[in-house]
């Protein structure tokens, strides 16, 4: 296995790195590259949205009426505050106050859970109305012909985003576990920062999703 050694500041440095700062910079660079792949993956959905909205504007207009923009706005606020507390948790790890950082991480986790709960209500409300995706679509009196297309896009976008929120929550739990074990110090906290970057990306995607899906006119 790749051996790691402890350098003079007490940081664990893996064999292929000469020192801790090179290791941290590479780690962060790697996370940014991963975020690029996430952005490119979601780009497929955004392009599909843009193309179909320009071809069938009336479907999107009618479709968005079934969405409650208040729930969307609430979710946006929830995710923005979770981004704040995520950034603050890194701030406190830098300051060495691990306990406070732990609290902020817990709050971020809580916000993630809240987001999923709100999404759960939205989904059940729609499925109850028959607005289920694809050929399970039983909503009869849609004015436009292919209303199912709008909900196809809606479920794909929010579904994939939801999966990423859950993954983010699992990563935060993993970082909290390592924090409790005392693995992080003001000189070594790349993992917290990496998970933070991923969580901010999940928030970014929702920032774009909210106006596109909920505020169509």
């Amino acid at each position: 296995m790749s051996t790691a050694r402890i350098d003079e500041q007490g940081n664990k440095v893996y064999m292929q790195y000469t020192d801790a700062s090179q290791q941290d910079a590479t780690g962060k660079h790697g996370v940014w590259l991963f975020l690029v792949t996430e952005v490119m993956m979601f780009s497929g959905l955004f392009v599909a949205y843009a193309i179909f909205k320009s071809i069938y504007p009336e479907i999107f207009y009618e479709g968005h009426k079934f969405l409650d923009w208040r729930m969307g706005a609430l979710n946006t606020v929830v995710l923005l505050s979770s981004s704040l507390t995520m950034a603050l948790s890194i701030y406190y790890v830098q300051k060495g106050k691990n306990a406070v950082a732990m609290g902020h991480l817990a709050f971020t986790l809580l916000c993630g859970a809240a987001f999923m709960v709100i999404k759960y209500f939205e989904y059940t409300h729609k499925i109850h109305e028959g607005l289920t995706p694809g050929h399970f679509f039983t909503y009869a009196n849609g004015e436009t012909a292919n209303l199912a297309l709008y909900f196809g896009i809606y479920y794909c976008m929010t579904g994939l985003h939801g999966i990423h929120v859950l993954t983010g929550m699992a990563l935060i739990a993993w970082v909290m576990y390592r924090l409790k074990k005392g693995e992080f110090s003001p000189t070594q906290y790349t993992a917290v920062e990496g998970v933070g970057l991923f969580w901010h990306l999940v928030d970014l995607i929702w920032i774009y999703l909210f106006p596109l899906l909920y505020l169509v006119s």
């Binding site: 792949t37 996430e38 490119m40 993956m41 979601f42 780009s43 497929g44 959905l45 599909a48 179909f52 995706p133 694809g134 050929h135 399970f136 292919n146 199912a148 297309l149 196809g152 896009i153 479920y155 794909c156 994939l160």
Partner: peptide
């Protein structure tokens, strides 16, 4: 990643018939 989303949409198309 764009292939990843294309293949996912193809699976969604076959399984759910989302109509893209």
């Amino acid at each position: 990643p764009v292939l990843a989303i294309t293949l996912l949409l193809l699976v969604a198309e076959r399984a759910l018939g989302i109509g893209f």
